[in-house]
Computed example of a mutant assay.
Amino acid sequence: MVAEPTTALSTPVRVTGLDGILLAGERWEGERRPALLFAHGFGQTRHAWAGSARALAAQGFSALTFDARGHGESERVPRGDYHMEQFVSDLLAVASVATPEGGPRPVVVGASMGGLLALVAAGEAEGPCPFSALVLVDITPRWETRGVERILGFMRAHPNGFASYDEAASAIEAYLPQRRERKTEDQLKPLLRQGGDGRLRWHWDPALLDGLVEESERYQPRLFAAAARVQVPVLLLSGARSDVVSSHTVEEFLRLVPHARHVSLADATHMVAGDANDAFTREIAAFMQTLQATPPKHYDDVTR
């Protein structure tokens, strides 16, 4: 849930998703292709990727970050009727504008929910895969229920919002004790909305916690089937201290996708990009370099 603000290196993008829902994004220009398409996790926004997108753009990589429907500045679904299919369709819509016409398909970097959506879109494609490669950030088709329940517990913990940014910062500080810096008001502004009662509430639509969360459990068989069909290069980046992904779920995933490479970042929890942003960004850049050559048929499991 914690984010860094964007900078002048990015320009606003608006993409029309399924049913005309407008999705807010940022384009980070670079000369190198394929472009990176960042898909955030449940309850996050595009700002979660700003540090990495900025650093990768400085290295010449083009990138696109966006808010999923019901999150951040993207539009909410009327009557709160959210379904996973909507999010998959939106991801494909954003992918279609991530690179210039005729350019190589983007590399999707998907955290948690974003990674699951990318797996479905890639594994169920009727024609060529819409992505040239996948980076899954601390997510596998099977996840540890206790870790997910901890996340949802935090998301449900403050239905009445906060009286001040300082109060919100304290809540995040308690939720993410591994973070060294307390969030400032400027860093929190993209994450909160002020209601008519003057209180600050998270940027995401509370209706997301209803049907969409329950629906995700039923998606697991579909996710396994989709993963087994993925043929493009895959990098799984996990947090060694994650309570959502475990050695068991990683091993299971690598049996499903034997050509995938796994890197575990020692200092990261489930919030990989926020906990170890420099290491995370280095791994993304290194993976992009490997795509310039013919990918090997199998990658070794790596811990860093």
Rank of each mutant, 00 (worst) to 15 (best):
D186P: 00
G17S: 11
H270I: 13
P130D: 05
H270M: 12
P34G: 10
D197M: 00
R180F: 08
V97K: 02
A93L: 00
A260I: 08
E283T: 04
R261I: 01
G147V: 12
A50T: 06
V107E: 02
A68H: 15
I151C: 10
T99N: 05
R105S: 12
T16A: 13
G30T: 03
V213P: 14
A225N: 02
V15P: 04
T294D: 07
R79Y: 10
L56H: 05
V88H: 04
Q59T: 04
S264G: 14
R218V: 12
I21C: 07
L223H: 09
L192I: 02
L256C: 11
P5I: 13
R255H: 15
E181W: 05
S170W: 13
T16G: 11
A157E: 13
P177K: 04
H83R: 14
E31D: 09
P12N: 03
I172R: 14
E29V: 06
H248S: 15
E214I: 01
D67S: 13
V272W: 06
L116D: 12
E149W: 04
N160K: 06
G30F: 02
E252I: 10
S246H: 09
R146N: 14
T249M: 14
E251K: 15
P221L: 09
G161S: 03
E31Q: 08
P206Y: 10
L92D: 03
H248L: 15
G41I: 03
L235F: 08
G239Y: 01
A168M: 12
A273C: 09
G25K: 08
R241A: 08
Y82G: 05
Y299D: 01
M84Y: 13
A111V: 02
D19R: 12
L200D: 00
A276E: 13
V148T: 12
A169C: 11
D243I: 10
L209W: 05
E185S: 04
G30V: 03
W143V: 14
V232G: 09
T281A: 04
A93C: 00
A39H: 09
M84H: 07
D19W: 01
V107F: 03
F224N: 00
Q187C: 00
G161M: 06
G17F: 03
L256P: 08
L200V: 01
S242L: 09
A125Y: 05
E126G: 13
L200E: 00
L237H: 10
V109N: 05
Y165E: 05
A125I: 09
E251Q: 15
G153M: 14
I139P: 07
T11W: 04
G43C: 06
V97Y: 05
